[in-house]
């Protein structure tokens, strides 16, 4: 498959009165795992919000599977950063995954047993079926992330957008999540994740977008994720390539 999941052209977005990203262009290939990598303040969150159609753009175009932002909303599922969620919210694992179906259910449609089966099947996909009735406040970081992945799976969107899926979770959970994402890719999903750990970019992802207000480079990790490009993106030299520390 060489089709593009996302095509972005000359995109400039202001956020809080400041130009956050400028003249950004890239393409995300369908059915690939793509990382968005860049230093703090590079505009990664702004880019995600723009892709989701949540903030206005100044110039440029975004298309997803050939559709405009308003048309493609239901083709994207979004996995937020864990820190953005109130984990004391009264909900169990099943409830949270079921929220993935709210868009499809609308206001009045009954939550049928077929819907329940879909939620259970998504929980099985992320190996969380035994935790269905567990309160979300009682989950570990890795489990919380897997619940959100299940929610994303149940939405059955073509593109999964994740904001730092590995933030603050242990190595074992990270491996489990990478495994889930790879299986989703095999199921035909396109996956884009904001990622911070430079040492794992090549292991986890097929493609990378290097961003620091503008796109430094994008393409397959083996071609693009070079020492020169990464140093250019982070604006430092002698970057310890494996740890990402200058």
């Amino acid at each position: 498959m060489s089709a593009n999941a996302i095509t972005v052209n000359e995109l400039t977005v202001d956020y809080d009165g400041v130009t956050a990203i400028e003249d950004v262009y890239f393409a995300v290939h369908a059915e690939k795992l793509t990382a968005i990598v860049g230093p703090n303040g590079a505009g990664k969150s702004t880019l995600i919000k723009a892709l989701l159609g949540l903030i206005p753009t100044r110039t440029g175009t975004i298309s997803c599977f050939g559709k405009s932002p308003k048309q493609y909303r239901k083709d994207i599922s979004y996995v937020p950063q864990r820190a953005q969620i109130d984990w004391e919210f009264p909900a169990n694992v099943f409830d949270v995954v079921a929220m993935g179906l709210y868009g499809e259910l609308g206001l009045l449609r009954r939550f049928s047993s077929a819907h329940k089966d879909r939620v259970r099947s998504a929980l099985t996909d992320v190996d969380m079926a035994d935790f269905a009735t567990r309160q979300i406040s009682q989950l570990s970081g890795g489990q919380q992330q897997r619940v959100f992945l299940a929610r994303s799976i149940v939405q059955d969107a073509k593109l999964i957008l994740l904001d730092e899926p590995f933030g603050g979770i242990d190595a074992k959970s990270e491996a489990v999540i990478v495994d889930i994402l790879r299986r989703q890719k095999q199921n035909g999903k396109s996956i884009v994740a904001v990622h911070h750990d430079l040492s794992t970019v090549k292991d986890y992802f097929d493609d990378v977008i290097l961003l620091n207000k503008t796109v430094t480079a994008f393409g397959p990790v083996n071609d693009v994720f070079t020492k020169t490009n990464v140093e250019k993106t982070y604006g430092v030299s002698n970057l310890d390539f494996l740890t990402g520390r200058a």
Partner: peptide, 12 residues
């Protein structure tokens, strides 16, 4: 519920 728990989800 979706709006209060995860406003992006409800928006989408």
């Amino acid at each position: 519920t979706a709006f209060i728990f995860d406003s992006v989800l409800s928006e989408m």
